[in-house]
Nucleic acid binder design. Structure first.
Lengths: 108, 108
DNA sequence: TCCATATATCGAGAATAGTCGATATATTTG
DNA sequence: CAAATATATCGACTATTCTCGATATATGGA
């Protein structure tokens, strides 16, 4: 996890449309959601959806798996864990103690 | 924590300059860092720094406290916790089980 | 082969963001 | 009051992003 990766992932999530998409996938869990289903659910033009989806996939927050004619999208929990870990990690590293955050062990 | 707040916070962190600034403040801990110290540390023009700092303050990730002539900046750990909680929370909510994320209890 | 479905790419316009030098403001010190 | 320090705002330029309709591609079925 270098800072560029983290920044690009945060930027990807820092757009309401993409955050909504991502959250919908997170809620969908391991079974994921087809692109079309996501589109129906969120009522977004397919080009816009595809554009944003691409960004989420590029930064590694979403994975895609082709199933015959449809493309299943899934939130990548591993990368979410790393991201969360990065944010929580190193808190107060330059200081003594008094930190309310507990560093996530899984931080990569 | 509504989605707009979360998106704006993520967007604020989704820029390498701001993420670096924020991380530096996180590492600095409760004692914080004056704007000028931050500038020296990161070697960024003061106007650019001020511009980015403003954004971090606006979204609530950083707080500022005036100390006579200097302005001390601190990472707001509470909002960081909320943000992290939001990301981890509701994972697989629309599904049965099989979720690797453990929801952060402190999520607000 | 032709059509329907699923998804991606293209192209363009409007909006927003990132950066920086110059300048402004406010505070302290001499 | 003048100079120095600390930080913010302004103005401008460039670059990037967001969004969408139109079009392209790829796959499976009649």
């Amino acid at each position: 996890m270098n800072i560029e990766t983290v920044a690009s992932q945060l930027e990807a999530l820092g757009n309401q449309t993409r955050l909504t998409m991502y959250r919908t996938l997170v809620r969908a869990g391991d079974s994921g959601l087809a692109v079309g289903k996501l589109q129906l659910k969120l009522d977004i033009p397919s080009s816009t959806l595809s554009h944003h989806l691409k960004k989420l996939v590029e930064v590694g927050l979403v994975t895609q798996e082709r199933q015959v004619t449809t493309l299943i999208c899934r939130a990548n929990y591993t990368s979410m864990n790393s991201l969360v870990g990065y944010l929580a990690d190193e808190c107060c590293a330059d200081e003594a103690a008094s930190c309310s955050m507990s560093a996530t062990e899984e931080a990569a």
